[in-house]
Design a binder for these strands. Structure first.
Lengths: 187, 187
DNA sequence: GTCTATATTTCGATAGAC
DNA sequence: GTCTATCGAAATATAGAC
């Protein structure tokens, strides 16, 4: 049941946004009452938090591995593979990424809550740290940031534009495109 | 005064999000009461709508010009210049883009309102139409979409990472990076 | 685990004085 | 143009029966 609530909440948070979605909306679509939801989640915020943790789970391993690399050179070399992995993940978990893209301020305010994870656990902070590493040339860091934005932006903001393109083909086109970003500038 | 309200609203909508920002929050920061705001705006939504129109104004000319080009070839050729222009605009109007990126669902639901602009006026629809043009090869459209995502994503989501980079330098780095996306694939 | 019923709060919006 | 005061709606959350 907990899972069904999360599924419906995910749908509605994408359709209407987190704030415009009341617990009654979720309950009605499930055919239960509002109070039933409170048996599974103490607060409405906890539903959002759970969805947030799923994004963390998706990105954690890849990011930890990247951050464990000691030299800037090693990190730069590993970046293209990370982006390729990200493309797969966004395509495979479109809705989790979508709900984040469409409710950024709601998700960010989860951090205000004391129950939230420690700062070092936060995914965005980890990314920021990597992109701030002064040992990596600024030009390269800008390209890395662009690559991130390109993948997430293209596959979420305009996802419906390429809705009829098979996942495999879309992934290949994305990889080809973004590779020109992460690779060193052409002569 | 209307302008001061919009300035403060812009700040708060970025900091806390549109839904978590009450009219009392805005009024307090201005040193007035809630009722004073209602003299300048009929509804809270109208404040958001006004901010939305500012984004439209920024992008309209460039997009209209692009859409007026008749052939797909001409449109493809004009794209790199459009992206360069976008880089300048995002840097010059960071906050307007920021408030949109952080409150996507709120802005999208402005469309549900009958007072909203006609569908053909909507900026995102216009972009979608361009990116859906079947006369442009799919691979190129994917690259165009990536370029858009890269510019907006890199300059908003991670804006603070490059906060101490001068605007001019950042713009140049962005142009260099994204050019490899819009240009034809390398051999 | 789910229900009915209700408590509590907050917010958007209005009326009318100054 | 701004204020005080208040209305009414809607949402989160709780209490207690089944």
């Amino acid at each position: 049941m907990r899972e069904r609530i999360l599924d419906v909440a995910l749908e509605l948070f994408i359709e209407q946004g987190y704030d415009k979605t009341s617990l009654r909306d979720i309950a009605e679509r499930l055919g239960v009452t509002k109070a039933a939801i409170y048996y599974h989640f103490e607060r409405k915020e906890d539903i959002l938090l759970e969805l947030h943790l799923r994004l963390h789970a998706i990105g954690r391993d890849a990011l930890d591995e990247l951050e464990s690399l000691q030299t800037a050179e090693a990190q730069m070399a590993a970046w293209p593979a990370l982006i390729d992995g990200l493309i797969e993940q966004v395509i495979a978990n479109r809705e989790i990424f979508l709900v984040h893209v469409r409710n950024r301020s709601a998700f960010e305010q989860l951090g205000d809550d004391p129950r939230h994870l420690a700062e070092q656990d936060d995914l965005e902070d980890q990314v920021r740290r990597l992109l701030s590493n002064p040992d990596i040339p600024l030009a390269q860091r800008v390209r890395m940031t662009c690559a991130l934005g390109a993948v997430v932006g293209a596959l979420t903001s305009a996802s419906n534009v390429f809705a009829d393109v098979p996942d495999d083909e879309l992934a290949k086109l994305m990889r080809d495109a973004v590779r020109d970003l992460t690779a060193p500038p052409r002569p």
